[in-house]
Amino acid sequence: MSFKRKNKVLQPQPRILEINDDFSLIKRFIEGDESTFKTLVHRHKEKVRNIIYLTISSPEEVDDIAQEVFITVYKNLKSFRFESQFTTWLYRITVNKCKDHLRKMKTRSIFVPVKETEDHGYNHLTEDMDVPAIVQKAISKLPEKLRTPLLLKDIEGFSYQEIADTIQCEVGTVKSRIFRAREGLRNILKPYEGELKA
């Protein structure tokens, strides 16, 4: 009897899917379960922080801006319209916050005297820098509108369409900007071909 029991064919149990995708969490949040917001933050915070880091190139300010991003999401989540991916909306907010920050910094820099030691172009990249540092420095010299699509593509692995949704432009524009970013990077790094080959 026990044998029988051993050889009993196990019937596949119906799989209870825990509906834990972004839309479900948002719906529950709207219904009053604010704890779901924690899950959303936990799931997307690193991506958000990295986009910020890639865009503003200033690690010490990343968390402050990221906090602003999630506060904005928290305040507006109940009016989310489910017309696009949550991530598209989230990254759009992130990029806009970064733009705001860069705009503020630019305005502030008008009133701050320019330091004599400040670099004014790729020619000022120091020779004793290692390759990653040289490349990072070169990327930071790119204009924001070229740098962001390039990094979203090469670092974050966004598709052209996702990039277009995030920065709110056409796919053709993203294509063009990424190519121009690479061309720009090539020009900036040209004097360091030796170091880069080594």
């Binding site: 968390d63 990072q136 990327i139 670092i155």
Partner: peptide, 17 residues
């Protein structure tokens, strides 16, 4: 390749949440 390898991802922030 240079871009991918040069840019390091930001370490996780344990206190962010």
């Amino acid at each position: 390749e240079l871009t991918k390898t040069s840019i390091k991802r930001l370490p996780e922030s344990p206190y962010f949440e």
